[in-house]
């Protein structure tokens, strides 16, 4: 029931927001068309601005992933994962999630194909996927859009959030399905 409501909400949200904003602007006597176009002009500029940042970030991640360094890292960290009760099969997911959206999506599908979507590992990896965003992509795009390259504590804060998200996913899955 909740699910249906949420899904319906996510479908009608955009048309509703757009209609509401336009209607309100019209009521306030804003020159709607002019105003929209004036704002929309910035779209191209922002998209172009983020290209160098995105290239830098994605290429570095691409090199790292293609090199097989990930497997080495997984092997090195497996004992740590076991120590906190995380199945080693789920470890690559936790490591890949902040780096690559498409990569972790593929990995999630692979793991669920192998162990079944309703197995503990299947539920765990899909929870992990849903518990975080692709941190480095977000950092590159958002900071790129405003030409910020001195990012200060953004990486640390983002990775702490990811780490806690992964632990939280593990904890709740252990409690409910473990």
């Amino acid at each position: 029931m909740i699910r249906q409501i949420l899904e319906a909400l996510s479908i009608i949200a955009i048309p509703l927001i757009v209609a509401g904003f336009v209607a309100y602007a019209a009521k306030k006597k804003v020159p709607v068309y002019e105003s929209f176009v004036a704002g929309a002009k910035g779209g191209f500029e922002i998209a172009i601005k983020i290209i160098p940042y995105l290239v830098a970030m994605l290429v570095a991640i691409g090199i790292f992933r293609a090199s097989g360094a990930m497997e080495l890292l997984v092997n090195a960290l497996s004992p740590v994962a076991r120590l906190i009760g995380m199945p080693p099969e789920a470890l690559p997911m936790a490591l890949l999630r902040p780096l690559s959206g498409s990569g972790s999506l593929g990995l999630m599908a692979d793991i669920m194909k192998k162990y079944g979507p309703d197995s503990f590992i299947g539920i765990l990896v899909s929870t992990m996927y849903g518990s975080s965003e692709t941190t480095f992509y977000v950092l590159a795009v958002y900071f790129g859009a405003v030409n910020v390259y001195r990012t200060r504590h953004a990486v640390a804060a983002g990775l702490i959030a990811d780490f806690v998200g992964m632990l939280g996913a593990l904890l709740i899955c252990k409690i409910l399905f473990g």
């Binding site: 904003f21 804003v30 929209f36 704002g39």
Partner: peptide, 11 residues
């Protein structure tokens, strides 16, 4: 991007 920037400008 252009679409949402337009809508945001309206708002």
């Amino acid at each position: 991007m252009a679409f949402w920037l337009g809508i945001m400008k309206l708002a």
